[in-house]
């Protein structure tokens, strides 16, 4: 029934998927489109990416990550398995908790990566905060590697998130 307990569980699952698409969609845009395209863009046109598109994409990327974590934790709590999943199903003898737990931990690591590594380093690399040329170059490389790490983790993370009905 509308607005009963199972509806709210569904509602937060919907919000979780919406914000997850916002987050991982931008992550894949950075890794599959923007980073590989930068060397092909003439220098005088690069500011269109670094000053306009990248800062806007980073805004929706990092807030998408935050919203995905918040709605995901609420969803796990409403579903009654937050503790079991965070323990990776140890002591429960249930593969569902192990699978969703792996997904949750990878998602949490990825979100921490976004807010504590990628975003601060991108601010330096894009010149949104003060940094020397050397610092900018180094920050850009660290941000790229952290972003690539998240792209790598997104593959098993999404398997874990969507496979629980199979287990």
């Amino acid at each position: 029934m509308l607005f009963d307990y199972s509806w709210w569980t569904f509602f937060f699952r919907w919000l979780h998927v919406l914000s997850g698409v916002m987050w991982i969609g931008h992550l894949w845009y950075f890794n599959f489109v923007q980073i590989p395209s930068m060397p092909k863009i003439p220098d005088e046109q690069k500011p269109a990416i670094t000053k306009v598109i990248a800062p806007a994409a980073l805004f929706w990327f990092r807030h998408g990550a935050l919203a995905t974590v918040i709605t995901g934790l609420i969803l796990a709590y409403l579903s009654g398995y937050s503790g079991n999943a965070l323990k990776l199903g140890f002591g429960d003898d249930n593969r569902k908790f192990t699978a969703i737990g792996f997904g949750m931990w990878m998602g949490l690591i990825m979100a921490a990566n976004v807010w504590f590594i990628i975003w601060p380093k991108q601010q330096q690399a894009l010149g949104l905060v003060e940094a020397t040329a050397d610092e900018k170059k180094r920050a850009g490389r660290i941000a790229m590697l952290a972003s690539r790490t998240n792209t790598m983790l997104s593959i098993p993370m999404l398997y874990a998130m969507t496979s629980t009905h199979f287990y």
């Binding site: 990776l88 003898d93 593969r95 792996f102 690539r148 792209t151 790598m152 983790l153």
Partner: peptide, 30 residues
Amino acid sequence: MKNPLESLGKTVSLGILLTVVMVVLIHVIH
């Protein structure tokens, strides 16, 4: 030495490999 994550193809391959490792781990744990 160049980090394998600098290549997008290697990143995706590592992600698929990590998925296989995770699936095995899920079955090993239970």
